[in-house]
């Protein structure tokens, strides 16, 4: 057994000291995720229209919009499952194309909305995590061959679960044995297993009960900041964005209407539509 204080590598306290990656551009590297003039078209219709935004490592950008605003399509473009019709998506200054290498895919992880479709029903949580950990190639000299031995992978999988607040005996269980909230935590652990630099969470709490919503949000925000990830939190729910985000972006009909620091956005929304959204939210009396 390892001592309890030992942290799996790459975690808070040891920000990843990586090279800028293959093909690092010569331009000014700000770090984090940059979406530059990104457009996505379906059947000739632009569902995302020249959207630009940037997320620094360790910060959280909240992207809000109603149905049809293009926010989910933008998320899919960022993780590389939808092709761009124009513009670019950059990670630490280097372009992420449509066809991404294994390492590039791992760098940008998605937490999906539906926790009941996001886990393979035939694999245990441990098998899912192990499957990803096996792919990992370590450069450290202590692990010749680059592959983590089996016991180390098990330990790492247990550590990942601990990070999201799940007991290690969950490793031997199948997805059907977990509630929606627990599945969402497992999906987060899976995303973190590949040591990403960007975390995209698409409506991660909208199919959950309010009582677990807070837990899942706190885990995403806490680990996103702690691990210096550039986090994009997409939600139709402004109170979710208000709870954890540093910056807020508003989209409508594929266009970015406003991008502002959260403090200013919630007090003085800059766009009339932002204000309309904020005012339409039903609030509890006396709060």
């Amino acid at each position: 057994m390892t001592e309890p204080t030992a942290r799996p590598d790459g975690y808070p306290g040891s920000p990843p000291a990586r090279p800028a990656g293959p093909g690092a551009s010569a331009g000014p590297t700000l770090g984090g995720l940059e979406v530059v003039e990104a457009s996505v078209a379906f059947a000739g219709h632009r569902v995302v229209d020249r959207v630009s935004l940037a997320i620094r490592p360790g910060t959280i950008l909240g992207l809000v919009g109603e149905s049809g605003s293009g926010k989910t399509t933008l998320a899919r473009a960022i993780v590389g499952s939808v092709a761009l019709a124009g513009g670019s998506i950059r990670l630490d200054g280097s372009d992420l194309g449509r066809r991404r290498s294994s390492a590039e895919r791992r760098a940008v992880q998605l937490v999906q909305q539906d926790p009941f479709a996001s886990l393979n029903p035939l694999l245990t949580v441990g098998q899912v995590l192990d499957d990803l950990l096996r792919e990992e190639r370590l450069t450290s000299a202590t692990e010749p061959g680059g592959r983590r031995p089996r016991l180390a992978r098990q330990q790492r999988a247990a550590d990942l679960l601990a990070l999201v607040g799940l007991p290690s005996d969950a490793l031997g269980r199948y997805p059907r044995e977990f509630s929606g909230g627990q599945r969402q935590l497992i999906a987060i652990a899976r995303a973190l297993a590949v040591q990403p630099r960007v975390l995209v969470a698409d409506e991660p709490t909208s199919s959950l009960d309010v009582s677990v919503q807070r837990t899942v949000l706190d885990v995403i925000a806490g680990l996103g900041r702690g691990m210096h990830l550039a986090t994009l939190l997409i939600s139709h729910d402004l109170s979710v964005v208000h709870a954890v985000c540093d910056e807020v972006a508003v989209m409508r009909d594929g266009v970015l209407l406003e991008l502002a620091p959260a403090g200013r956005f919630f007090r003085h929304p800059g766009h009339p539509y932002s204000r309309a959204l904020l005012e339409a939210v039903p609030r509890l009396p006396g709060r």
Partner: peptide, 27 residues
């Protein structure tokens, strides 16, 4: 393939072969 776990497996860096063999085939 419309289920999220297929995309998650590929997004996690697994090759197409492994996604099909390890994840889809048993299903």
């Amino acid at each position: 393939c419309r289920q999220g776990w297929v995309e998650a497996a590929y997004g996690g860096g697994l090759s197409h072969t492994r996604v099909v063999g390890r994840h889809l085939l048993p299903n």
